[in-house]
Amino acid sequence: MKHSPGRYAVLAAIVALVVAGWLVMAGRHTPPEGADLSRSKASANGIYEVTIEPEAEPVEQGPLHTWLARVKLPDGTPVVNAQIGVDGGMPAHGHGLPTAPKASHVGDGVYRIEGMRFNMGGLWELRLSLNGPTGEDEVVFNIQL
């Protein structure tokens, strides 16, 4: 019996669709709709521009680790003498951070946030309160683990 190549093509297309569907299903751990995962943001009242990054990637669940926060004024001037308070947690679970991290200026508007820990997977919030020469403001980052 002779099969036409066209039949294989149709079959292959169906399979491709199924596999694509499966891949989408498997990728369901992607962040909830709308969570803004950007690591660079203006603070709530636009007083500061803040960029965060972990000292080492990937961010692991469990161990203590450090983040760096670069703080600037909107005109690009580094903010070198801000007081930064660190808070956060998991809004979906209703709990805060498992540690009390501390931020200290290391130079050029870069602050080290030491003592961070994410003890479970999911969407975390990192809240930085900034108190500098141009005023008090807050910025909230979402971090997906």
Binding site: H3, P5, Y8, L11, A12, I14, V15, V18, V19, W22
Partner: peptide, 20 residues
């Protein structure tokens, strides 16, 4: 040989479909 490759591809595809 093209037919053979086509059939093998379809078989693999069917097997993964069945597994899925």
């Amino acid at each position: 040989s093209r037919r053979c490759i086509g059939r093998a591809a379809a078989q693999v595809a069917l097997a993964s479909l069945a597994a899925w």
